[in-house]
Structures are given as C-alpha cells and as structure tokens.
C-alpha cells in the first residue's frame, strides 16, 4: 500500500522537478532574448562635436539617412557615414531607429546617385573608422555601439 503511494509521490516530485526545470529553462531563454534586445538597443546616433543639434526627430533622422535632408538647421553640410549593408549594427539602426529595411535604403541611395539628384552616404568599414571619421569630419553623422563611443563625438537624442 505504501509502496505505490511513495511511487506516486516520487513521480509527482519528479514531475514537479521537471516543471521547475522547464520553468527555469524558459526563464533563462526569456532572459537571453531580453538581453539580446537590450544589446540591440545598445547603440547611439552620433555626430561631429561641432554639430549644435542635440535632439532630432525620427522623421528628420530618416530624411538624413535617406540623403534627402542635406543641411543642418544652421546651414552647414550634413555628411552621412554608414557601415556596409550587411553589418549587424547597420541593420539594427536601419530597421529599429530609421524604421526602413536596409535594402530599401540601398535602393533610395542608388536612385539618387544614378539620377544625379543626390549623393551616397560615405561608407566606412569598421566601428573604429566610424568613430575616427565622425569625430574629425565637420557636419558628420553616424552610429556606434555604446561601448565604442568616447568623448570625441556627440550623442544625439532621437525623439
């Protein structure tokens, strides 16, 4: 009589343990996903320190990276720097901040370049190059992982 009961108890315990395990696994998974999301937001739009803008609307940001808005409000040239189309940071900024797929940005730039109605952004190949270029080119705008940002560039707040 006691044997089957203990068996049931044992199996219940096992089941519970399994459930707990499952729950923990789920939690860890969620946590990972969350961490990933958090990591994705771990970048900023940066400008040349001489640019007086501190806050920019999403629409203006999109207009700048679409190469349609060409001057800062004070009349100086905007110079846009981007990483290659397949760079993870470029893809994140494109999809999350600008809210346009990278292939569409490419299409927009190609239309401008080959009809003469605009220019392409300047391509850099690494975060170091991005930092160096944005820090040294008047009117420059680009993006960087937070870990790569130093005092040589300004961080823009996007509303």
């Amino acid at each position: 009589m006691s044997q089957p009961q203990s068996l049931i108890q044992f199996s219940r315990c096992c089941l519970l343990k399994h459930k707990v395990c499952f729950f923990y696994a789920l939690l860890i998974c969620l946590w990972c996903v969350n961490a990933e999301v958090w990591a994705d937001n771990h970048y900023e739009i940066v400008t040349y320190p001489g640019v007086s803008e501190k806050v920019l609307s999403v629409n203006s940001l999109r207009s700048i990276f679409s190469m349609h808005l060409k001057t800062w409000p004070d009349g100086t040239k905007i110079r846009v720097f981007v990483l290659p189309d397949d760079d993870p940071l470029h893809q994140s900024v494109s999809k999350e901040k600008i809210n346009v797929f990278p292939y569409q940005l490419r299409a927009i730039w190609d239309r401008l370049v080959f009809s003469g109605t605009g220019q392409a952004p300047i391509k850099v190949n690494s975060s170091e190059e991005m930092l160096a270029k944005v820090a040294s080119t008047p009117g420059a705008i680009g993006y960087l992982w937070r870990a790569d940002i130093n005092e040589n560039v300004n961080v823009l707040e996007i509303k």
């Binding site: 629409n59 999109r62 207009s63 808005l69 060409k70 001057t71």
Partner: peptide, 11 residues
C-alpha cells in the same frame, strides 16, 4: 540642383 528651402522633412 539648388535647394531653396529645407526644414526637417520638407524640402
């Protein structure tokens, strides 16, 4: 190509 007016999204 001369930009006569430019303000945010409006060009």
């Amino acid at each position: 190509d001369y930009r006569l007016y430019s303000h945010e999204v409006n060009q």
